[in-house]
Amino acid sequence: MLAKRIIPCLDIKNGRTVKGINFINIRDAGDPVELAMYYSSQGADELVFLDITATIEKRKTLVELVKRIAANINIPFTVGGGITSVENAFELLQNGADKISVNSAAFKNPELITSMSNEFGSQCVVLAIDTKKESDENWYVYLNGGRVKTSILAFDWAKKAIGLGAGEILLTSMNNDGTKNGFAEDITSLFSEKLSVPVIASGGAGTMQHFADVFSIANADAGLAASVFHFGEIKIPELKTFLLKQNINVRL
């Protein structure tokens, strides 16, 4: 049976991990490769690297980093942040990334999804959506790292993007992100149950039970989190044992 995936997310700036990571006994926790190797040895199923610099001059740093990650870890990983063209994506995939995540650039230019999917296959194309529930109870798409509101509903955009060739959705609830009060089960569940591609739930993980709920109640295919892993509040082996006890199929 297909396992539910646990995905730590690493924010990268100038080739280094952002946020102080000090719990782990590794030589250089600021080095994304060291951290990636640590998570992979702990049983992470996949990793996501989000480059938050993403300026053109820093692109080379990212390519070099992707090369080092691919050489050192033996699980799949996604790279995202500022990817605006098929050429950008090609360079990262050629150097060993498994999937490319696109967000604002794809919203502004949906053709990007089509051309990436035609070129590399839809399994390489992850559409990241930052969404916020407004007072009208609807979930809207936000762009540019959550700074710009649009009038488009997240579900409508996801549906359209899947039609264009997106192979997976990384859904971040801005209402939940950073709260540690749990994932947004309503929108995650709508996505998981109505869309034909896997859905990664992101934003709000605070406890192991939150992961159990997003899998068993909201039917998410994967759960993504950053700080609860980086600060050692949740350890992946313990999380997986916890989920197995609740009959949630995970890889041990």
């Binding site: 297909l2 199923d45 149950e193 034909s196 039917n219 890889r251």
Partner: peptide, 21 residues
């Protein structure tokens, strides 16, 4: 076959992506 549903009546996801035994 994309028309199939799993035991929770959720449509099956294609591609088959992830860890399986």
């Amino acid at each position: 076959d994309e028309s199939l549903r799993d035991k929770n009546a959720v449509p099956v996801k294609i591609p088959h992506m992830g860890w399986n035994n």
